[in-house]
Amino acid sequence: MSVRRLAEKQTESFEFTPENKAWLEKQIAKYPDGRQASMVVPALWQAQKQHDNWLSQAAIEKVADALGMAKIRVLEIATFYSMFNLEPVGKYFIQLCGTTPCLLAGSDEIIDVLHRRVGPQRRVTDDGLFSWLEVECLGACCNAPMVQINDDYYEDLTAENFEKLLDNLAAGRPVKIGSQIGRVSSEPVGKLTSLTSLYGDGAK
């Protein structure tokens, strides 16, 4: 991670949609008077979801206004959490885990694919479909290497199945969330290696 700043090219304005506005008002009402600032993370998250998955300066200021906070307080939150994107991202925003277990399991290959297919980090492809970012551990080490695309994890990646995954996403075909090699959650790859006397073929 590097120093996070607001995007150079900003959108003119930001306005919550009527639905989101209603949602926001309902949520704000849950907080005691003077404690609305506690709402800042959900409010920013909603703003980001509405705004093509990134937060503009106008959106940050809108949230500050809605919650009665100083603008710098909201900027602090938005720059602190890496889940808030401060610049435009692709329709499919790929967060790649490059931390030790994924690295050992071959995340370098995935990075190569991304460099070839998408380009350098933090740049959106011309068709607006993809952008990617290397992030710290996402906690799916059992199924390394893995990426997070928007809200979902895609695990047990290889260069081949990852490229197929990108093809499918680009073509709008349905894709499988989770392990790409048919593994159920984090069960052992191949066959059972422990507790064989209780489960599997060797079970009594």
């Binding site: 991670m1 120093v3 996070r4 607001l6 100083a70 710098i72 307080r73 900027l75 602090e76």
Partner: peptide, 25 residues
């Protein structure tokens, strides 16, 4: 600035090694 002055001018953006003290933009 947040407590005594009451204007909330300054803040710390980013985190960890990248934390920076600044005013809003």
């Amino acid at each position: 600035t947040a407590e005594v002055a009451g204007t909330g001018d300054m803040g710390a953006i980013g985190r960890g090694e990248d934390m920076e003290i600044t005013t809003y933009l």
